[in-house]
């Protein structure tokens, strides 16, 4: 009782209570941002691990190591005569073929949420859509490969099908996003 009273009444600047009060206030400057960072960390890492945010440019027709396997963009084709397909007017199908040499065989982990897409120069993007066609039937897709039981060293052919407006045909390039690599994704150049 008497001790603290004496300290509070101490005319000198460096009384221990004053000193600690100042230290506590400075502590807030560090602790508050630290607390905010700590609380935001989980959301931030969740955001980064679930979105394709940062593009890595890749060359077609070369092996690119991604998600534990070697990805090779073989080709990208469309069809002139689309009368047999039930797709909207002014749209065209795009078939994208990859050859993948499996490295890490734990595909359910490495290829989690596999997302192959097309993106054009203005940033519009397309996800695969289903087109009933002899070119596609029986072909493996990214997601079907995950559960195909492919082993290390196997080579898998993957074909994804897209329907995009004809005006985007000129500039679209394929992208590949895998759970184990996010936020990075592959963006192939036009060959």
């Amino acid at each position: 009782m008497s001790v603290s009273d004496a300290a509070a009444l101490d005319p000198q600047d460096g009384g221990p209570e004053r000193k600690w009060r100042r230290r506590a206030l400075w502590g807030l400057v560090i602790l508050l941002p630290a607390a905010i960072l700590e609380m935001g960390y989980q959301q931030t890492s969740f955001y980064l691990q679930n979105n394709d945010l940062v593009a890595r440019d890749a060359e077609p027709l070369t092996d690119v190591h991604f998600g534990g396997s070697d990805w090779r963009l073989e080709n990208m084709q469309t069809m002139k005569d689309t009368s047999s397909l039930r797709i909207p007017r002014d749209s065209a199908p795009v078939f994208v073929d990859f050859t993948v040499k499996i490295g890490d065989a734990d595909l359910e982990q490495a290829w989690l949420g596999c997302k192959i897409g097309l993106v054009d120069e203005s940033g519009r993007s397309w996800l695969p859509s289903y087109v009933r066609n002899s070119r596609v039937d029986d072909m493996a897709t990214c997601n079907s490969t995950v559960f195909s039981g492919a082993k290390t060293g196997d080579t898998v052919k993957i074909r994804e099908t897209f329907v995009i407006p004809k005006d985007a045909l000129e500039t679209v390039v394929p992208t590949v996003g895998l759970g184990s690599e996010r936020p990075y994704y592959l963006r192939f150049k036009r060959s």
């Binding site: 909207p88 519009r124 859509s129 407006p165 005006d167 985007a168």
Partner: peptide, 9 residues
């Protein structure tokens, strides 16, 4: 309904 850019439905 699944929609893509440039292909309204």
């Amino acid at each position: 309904i699944s929609v893509s850019p440039g292909l309204p439905q």
